[in-house]
Design a protein around this nucleic acid. Structure first.
Lengths: 181, 181
DNA sequence: CGCCGGCTGCGGCAATACGTCGCACCCCCG
DNA sequence: CGGGGGTGCGACGTATTGCCGCAGCCGGCG
């Protein structure tokens, strides 16, 4: 809204979750970025080579190649690119790798657009509306459970195993809350 | 390992847990390192300035200054120093910080000497352990807490408020978990 | 067809974690 | 010096888990 349309910084968003992409992409556009989207490393690579973006948001776990190799590519194309890694499968090992490969930040989903922009280090345009309530642990847990449940096609037993929690407990949690914080 | 015996590489070990130090120190010596030990950042700094070590193993959470500042110091003294960070309170946030400050690897305790030595040799590779296991809810919670705690400069009361949880509960969680998943 | 293995919902019970309050101690600031 | 805020920790009643077992339902397979 207060950004000269011709001066928007370019941003490459790569995630295989299309709905997540469209939501985030819109949010980032509203914050003054010229967003291009790719749904896989393979799609993103030519885009990046064509015109290296100034910013990038990359999901790690995607069908096809891992986002890690894309980090390297982007970083080699332009070391000044600010790369935020975003993943639902956060782990210390991949975080370490990502940073060593040149990522600027490593965030665990769910992360909202403000957090991502903040991770870039600064807002390109308007003064940042610092800052919101961090989500409560309950909320976070709920989001996470939903994501994993989804990945397991709604299979509660499998989800419980993956989450290393008891099936009974999962059931109770699921039954109890449509919590909205 | 493939080092001339008369020219053992120097290694600085910093951890405030003295028994842990002595055990690890012995193990590292057996593997061919000339180990010097410090029990705090304050003690380690002059040692490092005196003769910058080729390798370093640093605990993050120590009484006194955080190991993070020591990473910076060591890295500035000699960017070639290979620094492994070792902590019982591992979190993604601190891992990211550590790597950005120049650490070579970041390991969660418990880690044995072999893992540590292996970490020295670890190159920034894109040979990735694509990880297919969602973090447990506990892990997630831990990460989240660490992040918010960090945002509040370690202020436990403020963090508890932000997380909408009781200070007492937060204390207990912080005290109890070296969760390693 | 019966049988087996896996998923689901649920009751119950003991173990554990949590919320809450209180107290002591620190440090900083007016 | 008093007050406000932070920290650590014990205690105790209550809520939440972990973990059993049971019954029902589905889908594959000999």
């Amino acid at each position: 809204m207060n950004q000269p349309a011709n001066e928007q910084p370019s941003l490459l968003l790569v995630d295989d979750d299309t709905t997540f992409c469209s939501v985030l992409s819109r949010a980032l556009q509203k914050r003054g970025f010229a967003v291009s989207v790719a749904y896989s490393v393979e799609d993103a690579t030519p885009l990046a080579q064509d015109s290296p973006p100034e910013y990038a948001v990359i999901d790690l776990k995607m069908g096809g190649a891992s986002g890690l190799v894309l980090i390297r590519t982007l970083h080699e194309l332009d070391p000044a690119t600010r790369i935020v890694v975003l993943t639902g499968y956060a782990s210390i090992a991949t975080a370490v790798e990502a940073i060593k490969l040149g990522a600027t930040q490593y965030l665990a989903k769910p992360a909202n657009a403000d957090e991502i922009v903040a991770a870039f280090g600064h807002l390109p345009s308007d003064a940042l509306p610092l800052n919101v309530q961090p989500p409560s642990v309950e909320r976070l847990e709920w989001e996470h459970i939903q994501r994993v449940l989804n990945e397991n096609q709604g299979n509660i037993s499998a989800t419980a195993r993956a989450l290393n929690m008891h099936r009974r407990t999962l059931q109770r949690k699921l039954g109890k809350r449509p919590v909205s914080d």
